[in-house]
Design a protein around this nucleic acid. Structure first.
Length: 292
DNA sequence: ACATCCCCTTAGCC
DNA sequence: AGGCTAAGGGGAT
């Protein structure tokens, strides 16, 4: 199956999109990317202005691919809106076609709770270990794939079982949040209907969810494109490129992101880049990480 | 081999 | 109220 992309209308770069670090479950084997969207194994590659893909089990309706990769976003328009200066313009040109992915909110939430104070290879290990231990197995091309576990599956796990996934001290956060989601205390669909600030406040009430995790979940799964998550890499590049927007007082170019710094940098991002600040964040993040 | 620091941070304590 | 620190464990140097 394939999906024809008219690049003049729908710019898209699959490699940038899957390499930039926003999603943890995709792997590239040869020319093909393999991953799961829900319980569907998806195999795809980009060639000659087309997206060629297979799904297993085979799906007749593949709109979910378009939804997942946000091919409905008017990327030209979005990038023109965040293209505020020559510095960010260079980054946009370098990674042109990178799209924010519309992940499943549940998987996104748990993944980013596990991502706290971890590095990307480690996050990938933990998430795949949770899927292997608690998720539904799917065989495709003689390979084992595992769907991300349902909330109920993690909610009824023990701390010790979760601990075997390499979660460390985060196991109790995953368990607590899984129970709240499983019970229906927080519902993602209703969060989508709230504005950025209100949805954020709801997420912050979950164990293991602070400012950074909340903003990642809002950006990558709840359609809040103004969210501007700040980690060590975003802090670095923003303070390198935009120092004039900050008082030197209370901001250090080294070390972890303090709460005060988080607020200052994230607010700057939303004000300076506007309603699509999250796109700017991801381009800058990927640029700064790939640079060093 | 080994030590050390870092990592897409949060929560709890003072 | 805001700053400091402990908390798995793997990756990187």
């Amino acid at each position: 199956m394939d999906f024809v992309l008219d690049k003049s209308v729908t710019p898209f770069n699959l490699d940038h999109t899957l390499n930039c670090g926003q999603a943890f479950r995709w792997k590239k084997l040869g020319d093909w990317w393999y991953g799961l969207v829900g319980e569907n194994v998806v195999k795809l590659k980009q060639a000659d202005g087309k997206l060629v893909f297979y799904t297993y089990p085979e799906q007749k309706n593949v709109d979910f691919i378009e939804d997942y990769f946000r091919l409905d976003d008017d990327l030209r328009h979005i990038l023109s809106r965040i293209n505020r200066d020559t510095e960010v313009n260079k980054v946009i040109e370098k990674f042109y076609g990178l799209r924010i992915i519309r992940q499943d909110p549940w998987e996104c939430l748990i993944s980013y709770i596990c991502a706290a104070n971890a590095n990307i290879p480690g996050i990938k290990n933990v998430v795949s270990s949770m899927a292997r231990n608690f998720g539904k197995k799917v065989i495709f091309e003689s390979q084992k794939f595992h769907a991300f576990p349902e909330p109920e599956a993690l909610a009824r796990a023990s701390l010790a079982e979760l601990g075997t996934c390499g979660l460390g001290y985060r196991a109790k956060y995953v368990l607590g949040t899984s129970r709240l989601i499983s019970s229906g205390a927080v519902q993602f669909e209703s969060l989508k209907g709230l504005d950025y600030e209100d949805a954020r406040a709801k997420l912050l009430a979950l164990p293991g969810v602070g400012q950074k995790v909340a903003d990642c979940v809002l950006l990558f799964s709840l359609d809040k494109l103004e969210a501007f998550p700040v980690d060590i890499w975003v802090k670095r590049i923003v303070l390198e490129r935009y120092p004039e927007h900050f008082d030197s007082f209370g901001l250090s170019d080294k070390g972890a992101v303090t709460s005060r710094e988080y607020h200052a940098i994230s607010t700057f991002g939303r004000v300076y880049f506007g309603k699509y600040a999250g796109y700017a964040q991801e381009y800058l993040f990927y640029y700064r990480r790939s640079r060093s």
